[in-house]
């Protein structure tokens, strides 16, 4: 059957990508646990700051994963789990959430193999999921029409688990990097803070695009619906500045990230209000949780903004990072 072969294909891509991600780690022996402990004793000052940033990134990745877990749970239930692949984001984001919690609690300056694999898997799931959603919309009658963009599989949604994976994966790279006086922490030989800033900036823009599409579907009937399409792009600009700028103190960016954290959580409040305005309100939850504005979606902004804050700290502590 077409569906099953597609599922196998995706699984294959996923497995391949994970292998690829892991194989890239092979030339980096310091990532192993024992040398890492040694690093901890050798460079305690740098590492503690880096580990703190890494843990905050774990936390951000966890929040994003939570959002994905709940959102894909609701949306795929609405889709009656017609394709077994629709369980994938639930399993992966659940696992990502768990290992992010683990990472948030983990003070050690070393990458963790299970976390690494899971984050990589999350990122790959995001990519494959995006492919899936594009395929699904494209094959519907009318193709990429407004109708299908509004009501078909949301094209941008799987990107949230990709971002969670990327941020988490970066966090692991951060833990295992060995910053010294000349050079800040690095991810794939790039300055960690700046690279993350770029990821977050792009992530904010992508998430904005998703909100813009769905709020357009809602005809921006409430002026508050303009907030998630105006505030995050400014945040994206500020993070871009963090990425390429020369200053180390990013007061505006920091404040703006806090604003976006608040906006994300407030968004869920607004969405709850939206659900209450549907016929029957929460008493009619079996319909309205599915039909109303998605409760778990807005905190993805908060997750990204938390990652942004970690990233800004990193840049402050390691101007070269």
């Amino acid at each position: 059957m077409k569906r099953q072969s597609l599922f196998l294909l995706c699984a294959g891509i996923g497995a391949g990508a994970v292998t690829l991600a892991l194989s890239r780690r092979q030339p980096a022996p310091p990532a192993n646990r024992i040398p890492a402990r040694r690093d901890l004793s050798n460079t305690p000052q740098h590492s503690s700051g880096t580990v703190r940033a890494a843990r905050r990134l774990n936390r951000a990745a966890g929040l994003l994963a939570t959002s994905v877990l709940a959102d894909s749970g609701v949306e795929h239930y609405r889709g009656s789990f017609k394709n077994r692949a629709m369980f994938t984001p639930l399993i992966v984001s659940g696992a990502t959430l768990a290992i992010s919690a683990h990472g948030t609690a983990d003070m050690r300056p070393a990458a963790h193999r299970v976390r690494d694999v899971t984050y990589a898997l999350a990122a790959v799931t995001g990519l494959v999921g995006t492919g899936f959603h594009f395929y699904n919309v494209g094959r519907k009658l009318g193709g990429f029409s407004w109708q299908n963009l509004f009501y078909g599989a949301p094209l941008g949604a799987p990107m949230a688990i990709l971002l969670s994976g990327l941020i988490g994966f970066s966090s692991e790279r951060l833990r295992e990097s060995q910053p010294d006086e000349q050079q800040g922490p690095e991810i794939f030989d790039l300055p960690a803070g700046r690279m993350l800033a770029a990821v977050i900036s792009v992530g904010l823009l992508g998430t904005t695009a998703e909100a813009a599409l769905l709020h357009f579907r809602g005809a921006y009937h409430n002026p508050a619906m303009y907030l998630p399409v105006t505030l995050p792009p400014i945040g994206a600009l500020l993070m871009a500045q963090v990425c390429v700028g020369t200053r180390t103190r990013h007061v505006a960016a920091r404040n703006w990230m806090w604003l976006l954290v608040a906006m994300g959580f407030a968004g869920s409040g607004f969405h709850a209000y939206g659900i209450s305005r549907n016929m029957g309100g929460f008493a009619n939850w079996s319909q309205n949780i599915l039909a109303g504005p998605p409760l778990p979606a807005p905190p993805s902004f908060s997750g990204l903004a938390l990652a942004g804050l970690a990233c800004i700290d990193l840049v402050r502590e390691h101007p070269d990072a």
Binding site: G218, A219, R277, N278, M279
Partner: peptide
């Protein structure tokens, strides 16, 4: 095309959107 309809696809004041 989708038929233009006089029924709400989003809330409006105290009127609930279509269920």
């Amino acid at each position: 095309t989708e038929t233009p309809l006089a029924t709400l696809s989003a809330p409006r004041g105290l009127a609930h959107p279509c269920v």
